[in-house]
Nucleic acid binder design. Structure first.
Lengths: 184, 184
DNA sequence: AACATGTGATCAGGATTTTAAACGCCATTT
DNA sequence: AAATGGCGTTTAAAATCCTGATCACATGTT
């Protein structure tokens, strides 16, 4: 976990000196020097100040820092991260594999409880999306087409088309889906 | 940037008390209390210790904190088209949703019979791929990492890395996977 | 050559985090 | 009801981070 090396790297990439960055971040050059030599572990507050001045998000900083170690390819079931759907959609669960920020492909484990609905305000975002129903039933509206899909059935369309998901059945519906690029 | 709230959230999600987490992380309960109340900004070293004990990567922690006419969209189960894997891989079944040629996203319903193996001639092609195991077990090799995944577990990696799939179990393994761009 | 300016590194001291122990609260047990 | 044990919070002291000044070195200017 070589924070110093990474900080130096992003600072240099911006063509900033320790003093310049320090001034922008409201810290001192000495602090940056110590951090870059890993002689101190900065507080999150300090690191955030520095990255705000770069600028770079803390998440991006750490995703690229952790990649330089042993890359992460595999995920336990509990490592899927729950993400929030756009607007509350009646208890829909969207569990995303990994950290989509750093990838062009997003895989989701979706669960639509009985009656769940992404709402009539049809969604719109760039990319393509596809999925397959594992269990239960899901009613999907794309553009002017509506269809109810059951286990083993799938969908594939351009995400820019207005679309909507709704569970018309009495049991939860589970869907594995993929999007490209990530949209949330 | 409410680190305290987020830390409390992930700690609770794991069902850990401040003391339990402190013990695992090599810190004290008081520290965690102060952090969760945002009365101090933890050093990155401390935060990493805490997240290692959760466990959760720092990157993941911060990504979730910062807050037609007759187009074909739907597919019956029998409309998935069987495609051939590169070389015979011991009876692997790859069933593709739709005609990937016209899309940037490819969704596959894969079945690996007992003993199936994509072979030691590790695959290499452009794009990213991800998947989730529905049933059975699959051993996946990516670069120099090997891992056996079971139901609910997933993978996500750059397809240019050499990789290999093998079913080491006694029952068929079913995987839903996505690739971008299509590679077969 | 002497000077000015820029770089990153170092050091004592002040500021902040972290510890270790005590505190108050609530629930369960004796 | 008193005692026990778990919870999160608080507090003084120890450990660590951060500052402000200084140092050594490099580069370019007069």
């Amino acid at each position: 976990m070589d924070i110093g090396k990474k900080l130096k790297q992003v600072r240099k990439a911006r063509g900033l000196s320790q003093r310049e960055l320090a001034a922008r971040a409201g810290l001192t050059n000495g602090t940056i020097s110590l951090i870059e030599q890993n002689k101190t572990s900065p507080s999150v507050a300090s690191l955030k100040s520095l990255l705000d001045a770069i600028p770079m998000s803390i998440a991006e900083f750490f995703t690229t820092i952790e990649e330089s170690g042993s890359a992460k390819y595999f995920y336990r079931a509990d490592e899927f991260t729950e993400i929030a759907p756009l607007g509350d959609a009646g208890g829909v669960s969207l569990r995303q594999l990994g950290n989509a920020m750093t990838h062009t492909l997003q895989l989701l484990d979706e669960t639509y409880p009985k009656g769940a609905d992404t709402g009539p305000e049809l969604l719109c975002h760039a990319g393509e999306e596809a999925g397959i129903v594992i269990s239960g039933q899901i009613e999907i509206t794309v553009e002017n087409q509506v269809r109810v899909l059951g286990p083993g059935e799938g969908y594939l369309f351009d995400s820019r088309l207005p679309h909507r998901f709704r569970n018309p059945g009495d049991v939860p519906c589970k869907v594995i889906s993929a999007c490209t690029p990530p949209t949330f």
